[in-house]
């Protein structure tokens, strides 16, 4: 595998960058996300997280029993602000400062 293979295509994170993060002592999915930005683009990790875990296992940075995904953030898929604005049950705001 060449150094220029992309693991996260949304945020352009390469195999080489993840290997660098592992070499710095970062071994968990949460840490790699926060060091490289992996999984923070439009797919929110749906395309790349499996590839990342395979790489972490291959590099022996984590054991299969210990591996955890990063926290999934709502919404499950991208939603426009206008659609969200139409959701009922909005709490009343406090008085502005």
């Amino acid at each position: 595998m060449t150094q220029r293979v992309f693991v996260c295509r949304c945020e352009d994170v390469t195999v080489a960058e993840i290997q660098h993060a592992i070499a710095l002592g970062l071994g968990s999915v949460e840490e790699i996300k926060r060091y490289t930005g992996l999984g923070t683009g439009p797919c929110q990790g749906k395309e790349c997280i499996v590839a990342l875990v395979r790489l972490l296992l291959a590099e022996r940075a984590v054991t299969p029993e210990a591996v955890q995904p990063f926290t999934a953030r709502p919404p499950a898929e991208p939603v426009t602000l206008a659609e969200l604005a139409s959701v009922a049950g909005t709490p009343p705001p406090e008085d502005g400062p």
């Binding site: 709502p74 919404p75 602000l81």
Partner: peptide, 18 residues
Amino acid sequence: GRTLAAVMPRLGRLKVLR
């Protein structure tokens, strides 16, 4: 979403990722 779309209406079309 409601407040931002009122302050800058064009942003209403923008999608929230997380």
